[in-house]
Amino acid sequence: MTFNMLIAILAAAITSGTPILFAALGEIVTEKSGVQNLGLEGMMLVGAVSGFMMGYLTHNLFLAVLVAALGGGILALIHSFITITLKANQVVSGLALTIFGTGLSGYLGKPYIGMPAPVKFEIVPIPILSKIPVIGTIFFNHNLLVYFSYILIFVLWFYIYRTRQGLNLRATGENPGAADSLGVNVFRLRYLYTVIGGMLAGIGGAYLSLASAPSWVENMSGGRGWLAVALVIFAVWNPARAVFGAYLFGGVEALGYRMQAIGVTVSPFFLNMMPYLLTIIVLIIVTINTQHKHIGEPEALGKSYDREER
């Protein structure tokens, strides 16, 4: 394998990892507030289809991404209502969201199957930075959504760990009773961050239909939403660490394509299953290593908050 190829794979890892990264960042924000939303797959699909439709109708990428975020956000709002207000089981509601989102995206996207995207995110090399050898090719020769994700990582990290709002967010997920008694509006924050998480998943979906493979194909997320759920655990709920996981998944995916391209005789199906197998293995390792340590998983994750029971 040549050095140039390695660089190409690393650059492709970022390209392929970014949609997962968006979804995972969204889920981190949601889970930090104590809500688990397993419906990422459904929200990504709805984001993908609504973004594509908007792009198709308006030829405006900004509006397309905005609508994709809204699509994901609306689905997350349903999840919020069911689990926060109606206190239903978060696991099952997340599954319902995945199934509903899959159906909804299939329903809405039916007329658009096979249509080419009239607009898509083109690669925009960043002046000067993209000229840096190696680094420039790997990091600064991408589309705008990738650059947006770079910014997002820093913004989210700073927001979660360095601002008052972030402190309230974390407290809501760790000890909602304590947060509530100190005047933090647990219900409102959980709604807010669940919807924000859904919006980011929606943007991740739009990335698929407007950047990686500009078109709409039913079920085009192909499990990336679930990879993102796993990624949150690998990242021990820290946005900065999610980056590595996302690019690792992206890299495995990219490696698969490359190996097929240069004619390595491994079954494509084996390469296809690599990200999922990798997820299982890494999940087991991470779980064993983080058990009994006070890091990561928000204490109240998955539990609906009931004032009376505090």
């Binding site: 109606l86 206190k87 969201l97 199934i99 509903f100 159906g103 909804l104 299939g106 329903y107």
Partner: peptide
């Protein structure tokens, strides 16, 4: 009519049953 309508209905039914359960609990 897209076949996905049925999937969507399934998801919607689960949502409503899940949410409606609050009246039972």
């Amino acid at each position: 009519i897209p076949a996905a309508t049925a999937t969507m209905l399934q998801g919607a039914i689960l949502f409503f049953v899940l949410g409606g359960d609050i009246f039972a609990r």
